[in-house]
């Protein structure tokens, strides 16, 4: 039996023999009975070893342990990762909205109080006017009062309260 050919036979069986050496091997085997028999013996031994050697199987507990380790070390799925990111963004947005809503509620209350205060001052001013006013002046005073009211509304409008249908400060 030729040792170099024996190696080639083994490499041919494992699929590692370079393509260029197949012809040389075939030619040799065609003319060498010892090497042919060697190749047949290896095939036989491999076939019998497959039947004779224990194969076994890992116990179910081992398979479970491997699965648990794989789960423990695995990164979350992309969709899950996206969902977690989206949840974080939504939570931040919700918190921001709550803050804005709270601020708005607080300032809206303050503006309402200021409207009442201005109305009260104007009412007192009307009631406590000691001087008799001529008719021509009454009209002018009403105009001034109206302008004052409009100015107050415009100021409130600029702070985010008030009605847009009111005349603009510049039109007065």
């Amino acid at each position: 039996m030729h040792e170099d050919i024996a190696n080639k036979i083994l490499l041919a069986q494992s699929g590692e023999l370079p393509a260029g050496e197949w012809n040389e091997l075939r030619k040799h085997l065609a003319g060498c009975e010892d090497c042919r028999r060697y190749r047949e013996d290896i095939d036989q031994i491999a076939a019998w070893a497959g039947q004779a050697l224990p194969v076994g199987s890992p116990s179910p507990a081992v398979s479970r342990a491997i699965r648990m380790e794989a789960e423990r070390r695995a990164k979350p799925e992309p969709i899950l990762r996206f969902a977690r990111s989206a949840a974080r963004v939504l939570a931040c947005a919700a918190a921001l909205m709550l803050l804005l809503a709270g601020w708005h509620t607080l300032t809206a209350g303050r503006h309402a109080e200021r409207i009442h205060e201005i109305d009260a001052i104007l009412a007192i001013a009307d009631a406590d006017d000691p001087m008799p006013v001529p008719v021509a002046d009454i009209q002018a005073a009403t105009g001034r009062e109206e302008k004052l009211r409009t100015l107050a509304r415009q100021l409130l409008q600029m702070e985010g309260l008030g009605n847009e249908s009111e005349p603009s400060l510049l039109e007065i």
């Binding site: 699965r67 794989a70 789960e71 695995a74 990164k75 979350p76 799925e77 992309p78 899950l80 990762r81």
Partner: peptide, 9 residues
């Protein structure tokens, strides 16, 4: 598996 699919492993 690297992306998180344990079944692939």
């Amino acid at each position: 598996y690297r992306r998180g699919d344990v079944d692939a492993l």
